[in-house]
């Protein structure tokens, strides 16, 4: 959220699957996200900026796309910056290093942001790397990387602002490592109690970013119980309405799976599509 809020419309977001906050900020609708995860390709009909990438499911393979996007932006002398969001697990893949390495060579307008939540499903950071930080991985690619407190949205916004601005001015790529902690399970199918102690997780709740932001705003007398309640019920209404729209989505004809496979479906696959149509109508 802090990173997305530092982006301009013409910037290009290349998110991972853990970046719902950034998606919402960019204009993707909640019911679209629900629809995709609810198993319907129409969830991909994103209301976000038309040039943004869909969130990437394979880990780290969006990093070379970010380098390609940034090359295109620079080649066309456009003002945009590619912003690539990754997890700590992605830093173990060659994809990210290959992308950073190329971005360094061409001083591309791209910012890589690693959401270091300490866990890649059940594998802790110490089994991902012996490097002291993930930010230092930028050094090998010839550019600057820095760590930021990922639980402090003001700090994240500030770091992202600075890095995006740096890239936009043609000064080359940046890497930001945002330090945080995955408080929840990896997915609803995951049970984190199998690999980490509940008391360790409990301790991390003290640093939970929304609670911290709230505490800060309250200390500045900029927030109180009334505002909190109002925001809470506003969010609840938005979520309920999105869930309703998601649940109300009509079913889809099976043969639509052939749509958008190629610009024009090649003749040789027409029979398969017709077979599916026939089965659906039978």
């Amino acid at each position: 959220m802090g990173v997305a809020s530092a982006m301009r419309q013409e910037d290009v977001l290349l998110p991972s699957y853990r970046d719902n906050g950034a998606l919402l900020w960019r204009g993707v609708k909640m019911e679209e996200i629900l629809l995709y995860w609810g198993g319907d390709e129409r969830g991909n009909l994103s209301s976000g900026p038309p040039h943004d990438f869909p969130f990437c499911i394979p880990v780290g393979s969006q990093a070379p796309h970010a380098a390609g996007v940034a090359y295109a932006l620079k080649f066309r002398k456009q003002q945009g910056v590619a912003v690539c969001l990754l997890g700590d697990g992605a830093t173990s893949k060659g994809d990210m290093y290959e992308a950073m390495n190329f971005a360094g060579v061409h001083r591309l307008p791209v910012v890589f942001v690693v959401n270091n939540n300490q866990w890649a499903i059940s594998v802790p950071l110490k089994l991902q790397t012996a490097a002291q930080t993930l930010a230092q991985k930028a050094i090998a690619a010839g550019f600057y990387g820095e760590q930021v407190d990922g639980n402090d949205i003001v700090a994240v916004r500030e770091a992202a602002n600075e890095a995006i601005d740096h890239a936009r001015r043609g000064c080359g790529p940046r890497l930001i490592e945002a330090l945080t902690y995955r408080l929840g399970d990896h997915t609803t199918a995951d049970d984190a109690a199998r690999y980490r102690l509940p008391q360790d997780v409990q301790m991390r709740w003290k640093e939970e970013p929304i609670a911290r932001l709230r505490a800060y705003l309250v200390s500045q007398k900029a927030w109180g119980k009334a505002e909190e309640e109002e925001l809470s019920s506003h969010c609840q209404r938005e979520i309920d309405a999105a869930v309703e729209r998601y649940l109300a989505t009509s079913s889809r004809a099976p043969e639509t799976m052939f749509e958008h496979l190629y610009k024009d479906l090649p003749a040789v696959y027409a029979a398969q599509r017709e077979e599916l149509e026939g089965l659906a109508n039978a």
Partner: peptide, 10 residues
């Protein structure tokens, strides 16, 4: 191959 995807998308 990844650069191809990124460039082509834009």
């Amino acid at each position: 191959s990844g650069l191809c995807v990124g460039m082509a998308s834009q």
